[in-house]
């Protein structure tokens, strides 16, 4: 297991270097936006991870409610935490890019608003987890909440297609609105970020199992002390 993990981390490191090469050297400047275009790759990568992470959270929540196995709740929690971190990255990179491309930091565009709502929803999810005692109760409440909050994910994805938004649409049914080398860099960035997510997820789950184990040990000791 440890061997597998170090190999995985080595692969991740190499992949990250390759992605950085593609982003900064392997793809051209944008004709209009210049080098600020390169923010976009990070942005897309973060978006892909956020979408995947929340989907895992929702699926794990559904599985928890179906089976009542707490390991699913651990998956949901870990994935939501990491997904929220990547949504933060998504928002920050978006703000920076917006400043470069539109000349403003922020606007209440449907896409931007929807993303902020999504971010707040999952922050709320994490807060509720923090404030709720009792593993089963927390798992049940959090699962229902995750499923409700997940509604915002497809809405967020579709905002730029349903409403008039100033946010660019990159992926359309007719292909990509970009140069081929940019498409390569974009997919490489997405793959790299997903690898990062997988590694992070593994570490977070291991950490969470340790946290729970310590909690159990503490409870057992307390029980012994009373007897």
């Amino acid at each position: 297991m440890a061997r597998f993990r170090s190999w995985g981390l080595a692969l991740l490191g190499a992949g990250m270097v390759a992605v950085l090469y593609l982003i900064f050297l392997g793809s051209p400047d944008d004709a209009v936006l210049g080098p600020s275009q390169r923010i976009f790759y990070v942005h897309m990568g973060a978006a892909a991870v956020a979408g995947v992470a929340y989907t895992i959270t929702a699926a794990a929540s559904l599985l928890y409610l179906g089976t009542r196995r707490l390991s699913f709740d651990q998956w949901a929690a870990a994935s939501a935490e990491i997904g929220t971190a990547f949504t933060t990255m998504l928002l920050v990179s978006g703000v920076l890019w917006g400043r470069a491309a539109w000349g403003i930091w922020w606007t209440w565009d449907p896409r931007l608003t929807a993303t902020v709502i999504l971010w707040v929803l999952f922050m709320g999810y994490l807060m509720v987890r923090q404030w709720t005692d009792g593993r089963e109760r927390r798992a049940r409440v959090a699962s229902v909440l995750a499923l409700a909050a997940y509604v915002a994910v497809p809405i967020d994805y579709m905002t730029i297609r349903w409403w008039k938004s100033i946010h660019p649409v990159v992926m359309t049914s007719h292909g990509f609105n970009m140069a081929p080398s940019m498409v390569v860099a974009m997919f490489a960035a997405m793959a790299g970020m997903l690898l990062l997510f997988a590694a992070w997820m593994q570490i977070r789950l291991a950490l969470m199992r340790v946290e729970w184990g310590m909690e159990d040990a503490r409870n057992r000791m307390r029980g012994m002390g009373r007897r």
Binding site: T113, A114, I117, V120, L121, G124, M127, V128, W131, L145, A148, A149, A152, I155
Partner: peptide, 13 residues
């Protein structure tokens, strides 16, 4: 305390 904070983002849409 929790409920208003939680409800608001769901009601914004």
């Amino acid at each position: 305390v929790l409920l208003p904070v939680l409800t608001m983002p769901f009601l914004v849409p």
